[in-house]
């Protein structure tokens, strides 16, 4: 092997080893890197009451209730388990039933969270509004875009 290919080899091996090291660190600190827990993950973790937590999932259909002008109750679900959330404040524009959402809050009692911040999550699908109207007109609109 000529000197230059030895150098190339050395650089690539160093790169791969460094990448492996960084990825090992990142995957082992998974719990700190993920932005939110899903309801199922939260239930498995058995968190303590009073702990700060962030959970994400879909807002369960028919679960959003408006209590007063700016306080709401709803459930966050990952289609297996659901967590009950109540919130005082203004909801983001995209927030609606069936839509993804992330909730910042404190665990009040098991399976119940008092939210301090709510973020709406949008998925990777983009579609003109006119197409949705057409689909709704023909009763073809199904929420299978998630």
């Amino acid at each position: 092997m000529s000197l230059r290919f030895q150098r190339l080899f050395l650089i690539l091996v160093t790169f791969v080893l460094l990448l492996a090291a960084v990825l090992l660190i990142l995957f082992n600190s998974q719990k700190n890197i993920i932005f939110f827990y899903t309801p199922s993950e939260l239930i498995n973790e058995k968190p303590k009451v009073g702990q700060n937590i962030r959970i994400g999932g879909f807002v369960k259909e028919d679960s959003l209730k408006k209590i007063t002008i700016n306080s709401y109750e709803f459930e966050i679900t990952d289609n297996n388990n659901a967590i009950f959330v109540y919130y005082n404040g203004i909801l983001p524009d995209l927030f609606r039933e069936g839509q993804g959402a992330v909730v910042d809050g404190i665990i009040e009692k098991p399976y119940t969270i008092k939210a301090t911040n709510i973020y709406a999550k949008h998925d990777e699908n983009y579609m003109p509004a006119s197409i949705k109207e057409d689909l709704e007109k023909n009763n073809q609109w199904k929420k299978n875009y998630k």
Binding site: F27, I34, F35, T38, K121, E124, Y126
Partner: peptide, 11 residues
């Protein structure tokens, strides 16, 4: 893809 994020996955 590796972690839960608020950012959407690739379209």
């Amino acid at each position: 893809d590796w972690w839960n994020t608020l950012h959407q996955p690739a379209s």
